[in-house]
Design a protein around this nucleic acid. Structure first.
Lengths: 197, 197
DNA sequence: GTCTATATCTCGATAGAC
DNA sequence: GTCTATCGAGATATAGAC
């Protein structure tokens, strides 16, 4: 009888790849390192991903992107109001950074910058994910009361603050930039929210 | 008689490396590619940089970082006021992005994310550069009238907006995020500047 | 100092036994 | 589907002729 509690080989490869790409980037991670981390045979990568490393990368980008939206949704559900939800998300990101010794920030930013000018397939995958984030954040802000014509611009600015702060945090091994970014994001969005009762 | 107008081998290696690291990252750029772009013999890299690729990387990070500060200083000198200087810098970054087919954004961000958890030597170089940027931007904002206790936080937020927008611009091949980030940066800083006559 | 040839290693990918 | 052996190409780095 099979051990259904243990993820299948394909899923383990996906999970290990996501973690390694997030921390070391795409070019800095070898297929051999991936299969070692996943405790999978080398050939399985090419069995499950006939397109090789690039196909694996594209799939990791998309699944990681979807998971990150769900993480925000999860935090937003528990918050009292939209501004607190945003602050909580920034705080959660800072906590993750500290817990992982500043390894885990954005799941796809490193890869996005690496492939932007070198792999059209992977660039498109990152573009789609970022678009989905901006759409989701924009819809969330609009539901919170931001004017429809301003929601997308604010979503982009909020996510830019997050992504930019991630770079400084990882380089300097400090969560201070994320705290400044959080405060600015809240100020920026708070200024375009209808006054609360 | 030597041709003094042509940069020396060492400088050509540094310049080519800076351009390639900026566009493809550190791991995505090979030493062979660098010497080919610099029209330099392979051995020269190890002659001028005995520490190999890592020493070359560290030097590129520091010189690129210093040049980027000078670029901002140059733009700031020509602007009428601080808020225009900031807007001009964002606009210039967008123009560079368009001119280079979305290849040239931040000179060190890709490398910074790649090496943050894999090379302490290079991570420290990126941290020093980012610190110098934050210090310079903070001093500039303070001179413009921002309260001393707020200048660093605003500098970090402004640079985060820039860096984050760069990621989205390169991934999506559009300068739209940079325009939203510019507007947000101006709003954020304008709100903490003393009213103008 | 310049340049080439090469050593050594690791990469992504494939073939084929089981 | 699992796993190993191996391929050819590319990587970084070094040795040594000029």
């Amino acid at each position: 009888m099979a051990d259904d509690s243990r993820p299948g080989t394909r899923e383990r490869i996906l999970d290990s790849s996501a973690e390694l790409f997030r921390r070391q980037g795409y070019n800095g991670t070898g297929v051999k390192q991936i299969v070692a981390a996943a405790s999978a045979p080398f050939g399985s990568v090419y069995h499950f991903f006939p397109g090789g490393k690039e196909q694996l990368g594209a799939e990791v980008i998309r699944t990681s992107g979807a998971m990150y939206i769900e993480l925000f949704a999860h935090i937003a559900l528990q918050a009292d109001d939209p501004l607190s939800a945003i602050a909580d998300f920034f705080d959660g990101a800072a906590a993750t950074l500290t817990e992982t010794d500043f390894a885990d920030a954005c799941p796809i930013a490193t890869v996005a910058l690496e492939v932007a000018s070198t792999s059209e397939t992977l660039r498109l995958a990152t573009a789609e994910v970022f678009d989905s984030w901006i759409d989701a954040a924009g819809a969330y802000l609009q539901a919170a009361g931001v004017a429809p014509g301003r929601s997308r611009a604010l979503a982009v600015s909020m996510l830019s603050l997050l992504e930019g702060a991630f770079i400084f945090c990882r380089a300097g091994r400090t969560t201070e930039p994320l705290e400044h970014a959080r405060r600015s994001a809240v100020a920026l969005i708070g200024a375009e929210l209808p006054a609360r009762p």
